[in-house]
Amino acid sequence: MSKNMLEIKDLHVNAGEKEILKGINLKINKGEIHVIMGPNGSGKTTTANAILNNPAYTKINGSIEFDGEDITNLKTDEIARKGIFMSFQSPEEIPGVSVTNFLKYAKNKITGEPVKIFAFKEELKKYMEELNMNPKNMERSLNVGFSGGEKKKNEILQMLVLNPKLAILDETDSGLDVDAIKTVSKGIEMFKNENNAVLIITHNTKILHSLKVDYVHVLVDGKIITTGSQELAEIIEENGYSQYK
């Protein structure tokens, strides 16, 4: 079986009338951790949303393949069921739907198999402990009244439970304190194995310190202008993006 998991070719994406992505090319293999860095407004979040085919964005050109299959125009839920997960920058609040019920339902949709409630709750509890989450949050409405940090941890929890092939983490580290960033990194480490992949989108490098990153891509004005190894992230941490403008 091919190692190749995700392949984006010459992707152009508009938000409304405005062209945001101007020809993105990206290849992610099994077992790899990729990072996309870039200044605000460079198109990082658009890239993540385009992979999940958010209807708020329009694809003008290019293609996205996943496991050798063209997913460019699949619906978001179909893409999710193929095994792509996205952690949201600002997760939505769903009043009246508890974290447990939501995840149980989503797990069933993703795996197509019935979920055994007791085993599932145990699994959930275990992950929550690892992520320093209050187990009481299990019965609270999804993201409603959660602090910024709780919401982000909840995204990581969902990633662990749904166990996708590719996890895209959109600014999961932003707005978090040092301890919370450590927890998020720990979650990624727990998730990561040789058969899956992670795409981290960020504009700071703190989260990368404790992770072994394979590739760092720099996205400026809708294009990936350079790709390097983990050292590239350190250079950017030092000098910022000004050299690429």
Binding site: L52, N54, P55, A56, K75, T76, D77, I79, A80, R81, F85, M86, F88, P91, E92, I94, F102, Y105, A106, K109, I110, Q158, L162
Partner: peptide, 16 residues
């Protein structure tokens, strides 16, 4: 629409 997208990204159909 954002909320629908969020749930769809977790594998739920639009109707679900």
């Amino acid at each position: 629409d954002k909320t629908i997208f969020y749930l769809m990204s977790r594998g739920l159909s639009e109707e679900d």
